[in-house]
């Protein structure tokens, strides 16, 4: 449906840009939007990495990681580090991921999302001394569970 008009590459980049823009601008009245789009951005990036890997994703990851750090932390650290490590681990594990069934890949994407969010929070604590509460992580978990299936459905539609 989507792929008839524009290529998936362009769609994913538009989604990444929009979700990034929303997640770095706080909206006082509906603050949950920031968290939702922050998680959605990560999910889109991981899906894009898994299904459309190209070395140019290094540049995309570098730019987004850098900007997320500058806007959300005012110093370059957690996001850039996690994104670069994520891509490097993916390159190492790529050959094993090809053997997995679609369901297992979806599960892998979900767990990668959780691990990425958790590692970012850990790096933020390590580099920027910002504590991470259990309630905040529970919030992340619940939102990611809610948005995961609809997002994957939309991404599949874009890919087909």
């Amino acid at each position: 449906m989507f792929s008839k008009v524009l290529s998936p590459f362009l769609y994913f980049n538009i989604i990444l840009l929009f979700s990034f823009s929303v997640s770095v601008n706080s909206f006082v009245e509906i603050q949950i939007v920031n968290i939702v789009f922050y998680i959605f951005f990560h999910l889109t990036f991981i899906y894009y990495l898994f299904y459309h890997y190209h070395y140019s994703i290094f540049c995309i990851g570098f730019v987004y990681g850098l900007l997320l750090d500058i806007f959300l932390l005012n110093s370059i650290s957690a996001h850039l580090l996690s994104i670069i490590i994520l891509i490097l681990i993916f390159i190492l594990m790529k050959k094993y991921l090809f053997l997995l069934s679609p369901f297992r890949i979806s599960l892998t994407i979900y767990f990668t999302l959780i691990i990425t969010l958790f590692s970012e929070a850990f790096f933020v604590f390590l580099f920027n001394n910002i504590n991470f509460t259990i309630s905040k992580f529970a919030n992340y978990l619940i939102i990611s569970i809610i948005i995961f299936i609809p997002s994957i459905f939309i991404f599949n539609k874009i890919d087909k």
Binding site: S23, V24, L72
Partner: peptide, 10 residues
Amino acid sequence: NRNDALFSKL
């Protein structure tokens, strides 16, 4: 604009 929802309060 504000960037105070997620990590630092800026």
